[in-house]
Nucleic acid binder design. Structure first.
Lengths: 100, 100
DNA sequence: TATCTGGGTAAAAAATTGTTTACCAGATAT
DNA sequence: ATATCTGGTAAACAATTTTTTACCCAGATA
């Protein structure tokens, strides 16, 4: 049973087309930073900024792997399974929580 | 089948605690501007601003009534029935639309 | 040496949102 | 006349979010 503030917070993370596309792209297979950048056509700091927010909200998972051959740490992103619903039932819960 | 931009737009309207509370308060009965202002403790222009966005997104309905006795136009707000879902299935649709 | 890859960050600019202040009309009441 | 109520709006200011620019590391390659 979320409060209006809590629900708004997660919706704020989802309410961005770039972040929705990142989640869509990492839905079936994990993607590297570079892959995402090329598919979305956005700058590195911008992608990292969006990824931060998604990881922070636990919508996106990170797997850190060490490439033995190239001696490089790699990060792979994959969308976490989630389901956010906003309907009358959820609003009713908010109403009850705000009255309390 | 929404695009990432379309879904983000409606989520942006929902991603605000005040607007979620307005929808919750107008869920079971229609409310006047004054009622909402007193229950939420916010200023008139601020309430109207939030209401505008909700009505614009078709999440909130307005009924305009003329009070014969007091010769005053009254507006009553009621939450429209809706259900917004964000999950793997929706993200998959976004993925297909963005590839197209 | 210079450039590429991988991983970033910090700060500033740009754009969007949220909120306040001040004002409008029309009718009623003091 | 002054103040209340209903319904607003328009402009300014504040705060947040998005995006860019510039910089950092290390290791491999030309």
């Amino acid at each position: 049973m979320p409060t209006a503030e809590e629900l708004a917070e997660i919706l704020k993370v989802l309410a961005n087309p770039v972040r929705l596309k990142i989640l869509a792209l990492c839905l079936f297979k994990e993607r590297s930073s570079r892959e995402l950048r090329e598919m979305l056509g956005i700058s590195k700091p911008l992608l990292i900024n969006h990824i931060k927010k998604l990881v922070n909200a636990k919508l996106l998972d990170v797997r850190i792997a060490f490439d033995e051959e190239r001696m490089v740490v790699m990060k792979y992103y994959k969308t976490n399974e989630f389901k956010v619903v906003i309907d009358g039932k959820v609003l009713e819960e908010i109403l009850i929580n705000s009255l309390k």
